[in-house]
């Protein structure tokens, strides 16, 4: 067999994998829609009341009931809702009186930006720390990494956030306080993408960029620290597993330098399960951390969902849930595809 057909066969396998993954995603997403819809019907919240208020007459109530389509059969309601969802219409928020899709488009970039900076911090520090701890297993550095991780697991995030603000913002005045940007910089740029770091950088508004950065650095470090705790612990255990394998002995017999054995041979194998760990951490961050967003007055998805829930704004809750679910499904699909790139063994499975 020539190398060309060999490569072509691999390409075909990859395509088949892509198609089957997309199929799985479609089914998962349909399930997600059904569950989300049913949750919206099962919760003991009267959607009519939250529209018309407590003092409406029976006639007003009935009119609203009809307008919301609640008098139709459940299946028909689902069908109508489904059609609207596929057109990007999640309904209108009772709280903000705007379309939910607009609301989410407004709050989601804030969470996306925070989550992305956080996961970059968590991965950039978490993976090397985990590798280092595994290589020096049982030594001092291993203990330090474990304690750092344990604190990240067990300390309440709102407390860490408040202490961080107290120290770095109030006492030391090194960073900016809550919010995404100071009001004096708010009109120095147009939020085209909603990712302020990107917007300010692309528009060359560097003073505003610095201000945005000094706002995001503390909450992002905090959330990054929490994912670091998880990522470093998993990296450590994956690496310990790989370093005990026989191919590591082979590499040593070959005279391969130790740094290459650790960072190329072993980590390349450990990277396969690590992809899932990082993807799930990222998905968790994208849900929007309610506590962090509250402490830092961060107008993100977590805060939006909590507000909507507290005000029985079910359309908004369903829309938000759907977005989060879609992110989870999407990231899972992405990490599945990355798997096949990283590990040839997963390519040949039918």
């Amino acid at each position: 067999m020539t190398t060309r057909t060999n490569r072509g066969r691999r390409g075909a396998l990859w395509l088949r994998k892509l198609v089957s993954t997309l199929g799985t995603v479609a089914v998962t997403f349909l399930g997600l829609l059904v569950v989300t819809f049913l949750i919206g019907r099962v919760v003991p919240v009267d959607p009519v009341l939250s529209v018309v208020g407590d003092r409406a007459t029976q006639a007003q109530y009935d009119a609203a009931y009809h307008a919301l389509g609640l008098d139709k059969p459940l299946v028909e309601q689902f069908w109508i809702w489904l059609q609207k969802v596929f057109q990007g219409d999640f309904g209108t928020s009772n709280l903000t009186t705007r379309p939910i899709s607009q609301d989410i488009a407004r709050v989601f970039p804030a969470t996306l930006e925070l989550a992305t900076v956080s996961i970059v911090i968590g991965t950039a520090f978490g993976i090397p720390m985990g590798v280092w701890a595994a290589v020096r297993q049982g030594k001092l550095i291993d203990q330090i990494v474990r304690v750092v991780g344990l604190v990240g697991y067990s300390a309440p995030v709102f407390w860490l956030g408040l202490m961080g603000l107290l120290l770095f913002y109030f006492k030391l005045d090194l960073i900016s306080g809550p919010g995404r940007v100071d009001i004096s910089y708010e009109y120095d740029f147009t939020p085209k993408t909603g990712l302020f770091l990107l917007d300010t950088a692309m528009q060359g508004a560097w003073p505003a960029f610095r201000n945005v950065f000094s706002h995001i650095i503390l909450p992002a470090s905090l959330l990054g620290y929490l994912s670091l705790a998880y990522i470093s612990r998993m990296t450590r255990s994956f690496m310990l597993n790989e370093l005990a394998q026989e191919y590591i002995t082979t590499a040593r017999v070959k005279g391969v330098p130790e740094w290459r054995i650790i960072w190329v041979q072993a980590l390349r194998n450990a990277a396969v399960p690590l992809v899932t760990v990082v993807a799930l951490s990222y998905a968790n961050l994208l849900e929007g951390s309610v506590l962090t967003e509250t402490v830092f007055a961060w107008p993100g998805l977590g805060q939006y969902l909590t507000n909507s829930l507290q005000n029985a704004d079910m359309n908004a809750v369903l829309g938000g849930t759907l977005v989060i679910g879609a992110i989870f499904v999407g990231l899972n699909m992405f990490s599945d595809l990355l798997y096949t790139l990283l590990d040839a063994r997963t390519r040949n499975q039918k």
């Binding site: 191919y247 002995t249 082979t250 590499a251 017999v253 070959k254 005279g255 391969v256 194998n269 990283l342």
Partner: peptide, 25 residues
Amino acid sequence: QWRGLRGKRMSMVMQDPKFSLNPVM
């Protein structure tokens, strides 16, 4: 000095190629 010897002047064949070869390379 060990690295200079191993793989170049002395080497070892191990039992099971399933485990002694790096699976992702």
